[in-house]
Design a binder for these strands. Structure first.
Length: 492
RNA sequence: GGGCCGUUAGCUCAGUCGGUAGAGCACCUGCCUUUUAAGCAGGGAGUCGCUGGUUCGAGCCCAGCACGGCCUACCA
C-alpha cells in the first residue's frame, strides 16, 4: 500500500494535472543548455545582453504578481531566473504559476544584472523538464536528521552544500590516489570480490552461494593474496581501489563494506612503503587543503614528512614497563595493572603474547597517536603474511599508519618464502579449527604461486573512507559513504 | 551486548501542571513587474514511531518493541 502523500503533495499533483491539461509534457526528453549557471556568472562581462540557455532545479521562487524570480541550481552553482509576463507571454506565464520549488526547468533568455546586482536570466522561454511531486526539506535549515540524510542521501545532497562538498572531495581523493600511483608506473588491477577462500586480513566474511557452480563463495575481506599473485606474474607494481567486506560491528570508523587501496611494489620493502605513504598523504593534503596542515574534529594535523616512527614493543614498554615484556605472564600482570580486562585467569583462555600486545596497542597507545605516526615492527604471531626482521625472528617488518588516533593503513615487507608461509598459515588454520573465525585459511593456490617465486615486495593497504573522513573533517565513516549500510525501515 | 538520548505536519522545531495539536518553511488562494530566508492577507495540512498499561481523560506518566544518534564493549 502506498501511503497517502499529504496535502501539499496532493496540490503538487493537482498542478501536474493542470499542466497536462494545458498541453505541457511534465517529463519531456533532452534539453540543450548553452551554459552552466557558474559560467554565466563568471563570464557575465562578456555575456551581458546575449542569450543563454540554462537548466536546473528551482530551489526558491519569489512571485511578484505579473513577474517572478527563481533560484535555479545546477551542478556547478546557481543563477537567478527573472520571469515577466510581458516577456514570456500569457501562456508560459500560466505554466510558471503552476510550478513549485523542486521542479526542474530549462530557461532561455538574456543575461542581465538586476537592480541589486545579481546576475540573472531574463527568461524568454521557460521549459518544464521534470515536475516534482514531493516537497523538498526546509530551505533554511536543510535536512538535519542523520537517519534521513543517510537513508535519502539524494535529499541530503539537494539540501546540504557541505554534503555535496564531502563527496566531491571524496572523488578527488580517489582520483589523486590513482594519479599518484599511475605516475609511479603502477598498474591498476581488478581482482575477484567473490572468492572461494578469503584471506589477507583477520575478519569474518560475508558468505554467498553461486547457483550454477553450486559453490560457497565469500565476499573478499582484502585484495592481498590476488594482488601478490600479480607480482608473481611479473607486473612488479600493482594496485587496486575497491570494496572489501567484513562481517563485523559498525561504528564511527567501521562499515561492513568499505573502500580500500592496496598496492604492491616488487623489490621494495616496508621502508619504501613508509616513504610512499608520506608522499601520498602530503600530495592529498596539498591538493585538498593547499598545504600539509589541516584540522580534523578540532585537532591540528600536519602530514609533512618525515612522520614519527615508533617501534611497537617500545610503545608497549612505555605503557606497561620494560619488565612486562620479558614473559607472557609478566605482560598479563602488567596489562591487568593498567586496567585492561583480560577475562578469566585460566592461562589457556588468555590471549597469546601477540594478541596481548595488540590489545595494549588498541586501548592505550593508538588513541594517543594524533600526529601522523608509523607504528612499526609487530609481533610475528599477529602478522602471518609479513617477513621477519633481520635481528629478531619473532618480529616482522610491518607498520600501521595512525593519524588522529585512527588506523589508516597497514603495510609490510611481504613474506615471500613459501615454506615459511605454509608454516604461518598452518598456525592460522589451527586457530580457526579452534574456533577463531577470523583466522586465515590455507590458500593452496596462493602457496603454489609463491613457490614459483615472488620477488621481494613491499605492500600497503590504506582505508580510503577513513582518509576521506580525515581530509573532509567528517566525524564518521557513514558521513563519507554515499549510501551507508542501514537496517531497513520497517514498512507496515 | 550495555548505558544515555531521540522519534510530534513533507522539512526544521515548540508543546507549560495529564484536560480538544502549535509555529516557521513548503503547498494552495488573493494582492504585488528588480525580488533574493521577498512582502502583506487568508487557507488547507497530524496514526504525536508501534503495542499495551495507568487514568474520567495520555503527545506528556509506566512497560515492552521498532528505528536512529552518541558513548561503551566486542571485533584486525
Amino acid at each position: 500500500m502506498e501511503k497517502p502523500e499529504g496535502i501539499a503533495q496532493d496540490q503538487m499533483r493537482a498542478n501536474l494535472e493542470s499542466l497536462r491539461k494545458n498541453g505541457v509534457d511534465p517529463y519531456p526528453r533532452r534539453f540543450e543548455r548553452s551554459h552552466l549557471s557558474r559560467e554565466v556568472v563568471d563570464d557575465f562581462d562578456r555575456l551581458e545582453g546575449s542569450e543563454v540557455t540554462v537548466a536546473g532545479r528551482m530551489m526558491a521562487m519569489r512571485g511578484h504578481g505579473k513577474a517572478g524570480f527563481a533560484d535555479l541550481v545546477d551542478v556547478k552553482g546557481k543563477i537567478q531566473l527573472y520571469v515577466r509576463r510581458d516577456e514570456v507571454g500569457d501562456e508560459q506565464f500560466a505554466i510558471w504559476e503552476l510550478l513549485s520549488v523542486g521542479d526542474i526547468v530549462g530557461a532561455r533568455g538574456e543575461a542581465f544584472k538586476t537592480r541589486s546586482g545579481e546576475v540573472s536570466v531574463k527568461v524568454k522561454e521557460l521549459t518544464l523538464l521534470s515536475k516534482a511531486l514531493l516537497p523538498l526539506p526546509e530551505k533554511w535549515h536543510g535536512l538535519k536528521d542523520k537517519e534521513l540524510r543517510y537513508r535519502r542521501r539524494y535529499l541530503d545532497l539537494i539540501s546540504n552544500e557541505e554534503t555535496r562538498d564531502v563527496f566531491r572531495s571524496r572523488s578527488r581523493i580517489v582520483h589523486i590516489m590513482r594519479e599518484f600511483l599511475v605516475e609511479r608506473d603502477f598498474l591498476e588491477a581488478e581482482t575477484p570480490i567473490l572468492q572461494p577462500i578469503y584471506g589477507g586480513a583477520f575478519a569474518r566474511a560475508f558468505e554467498t552461494h553461486h547457483h550454477s557452480l553450486d559453490l560457497k563463495l565469500y565476499l573478499r575481506i582484502a585484495d592481498e593474496l590476488y594482488l601478490k599473485r600479480l607480482i608473481v606474474g611479473g607486473f612488479e607494481r600493482v594496485f587496486e581501489i575497491g570494496k572489501d567486506f567484513r562481517n563485523e560491528g559498525m561504528d564511527r570508523t567501521h562499515s561492513p563494506e568499505f573502500t580500500q587501496l592496496e598496492l604492491y611494489q616488487a623489490y621494495a620493502d616496508y621502508n619504501v612503503m613508509m616513504e610512499t605513504t608520506e608522499s601520498l598523504f602530503e600530495r592529498l593534503a596539498r591538493e585538498l587543503h593547499g598545504g600539509t596542515k589541516f584540522t580534523w574534529q578540532g585537532r591540528e594535523i600536519d602530514v609533512k614528512a618525515p612522520w614519527k616512527r615508533v617501534k611497537v614493543m617500545d610503545a608497549v614498554a612505555e605503557v606497561v614497563g620494560d619488565d612486562a615484556l620479558k614473559s607472557k605472564e609478566a605482560l598479563v600482570e602488567a596489562a591487568r595493572a593498567v586496567g585492561l580486562e583480560l577475562g578469566d585467569s585460566q592461562d589457556d583462555e588468555l590471549p597469546g603474547f601477540g594478541e596481548l600486545v595488540e590489545k595494549i596497542l588498541d586501548e592505550l597507545v593508538e588513541p594517543k597517536l594524533i600526529e601522523p605516526t608509523f607504528l612499526i615492527d609487530y609481533p610475528l604471531e599477529i602478522s602471518p603474511l609479513a617477513k621477519q626482521t633481520t635481528d629478531d625472528p619473532d618480529i616482522v617488518e610491518r607498520f600501521e599508519i595512525f593519524i588522529a588516533g585512527i588506523e589508516l593503513g597497514n603495510s609490510f615487507t611481504e613474506l615471500n618464502d613459501p615454506d615459511e608461509q605454509v608454516r604461518r598459515l598452518g598456525a592460522q588454520v589451527e586457530k580457526r579449527a579452534g574456533g577463531d573465525e577470523e583466522a586465515h585459511g590455507m590458500d593452496d593456490d596462493f602457496i603454489m604461486a609463491l613457490r614459483h617465486g615472488m620477488p621481494p615486495t613491499g605492500g600497503l593497504g590504506i582505508g580510503v573512507d577513513r582518509v576521506v573522513m580525515l581530509l573532509t573533517d567528517s566525524p564518521g565513516i557513514r558521513d563519507v559513504i554515499l549510501f551507508p549500510t542501514m537496517r531497513p525501515e520497517r514498512s507496515e
